[in-house]
């Protein structure tokens, strides 16, 4: 049986990864890095889900984490397609310059 005292550390790791990812989204200006930080936040959610599922004797955490991974993959595909398209339009890769999504 897993040591129950580990649970706060796992949840602390999840909170740390999520807040670091959120800070990255707010501070960084490169859209590629912003997407990486979003991946970080989704991974933090996965850690919390799997930890809860492990300590509550349930597989639902794993199943929901699987759904989150699928959604993250879909999000990355569309996001990177958008970034390449922005780059093709000759715009600078800077989220501060992309405040409007026209054309």
């Amino acid at each position: 049986m897993l040591n129950p005292n580990l649970f706060p550390y796992l949840l602390g790791l999840a909170a740390f990864l999520f807040t670091v990812g959120a800070m990255g989204v707010l501070i960084r200006r490169n859209p590629i890095v912003v997407f990486m930080c979003i991946e970080l936040m989704l991974n933090a959610g996965n850690v919390a889900l799997v930890a809860y599922g492990r300590f509550l004797n349930s597989e639902e955490g794993q199943i929901f984490a699987f759904m989150v991974i699928v959604v993250a993959a879909a999000e990355v595909v569309v996001g990177l397609a958008l970034i390449t398209q922005i780059f093709r339009l000759g715009r600078e890769l800077d989220v501060d310059d992309l405040s409007e999504m026209k054309e």
């Binding site: 897993l2 790791l13 996965n46 850690v47 991974i69 993959a73 990355v76």
Partner: peptide, 27 residues
Amino acid sequence: VLFLLLNAQFLFAVQLIIYAGAVVVLF
């Protein structure tokens, strides 16, 4: 590795294949 330690073997494989194998390579 953390998922493997938490007895989530399926997610361990999915994490390696999809994230390390596909998403980061795309990045």
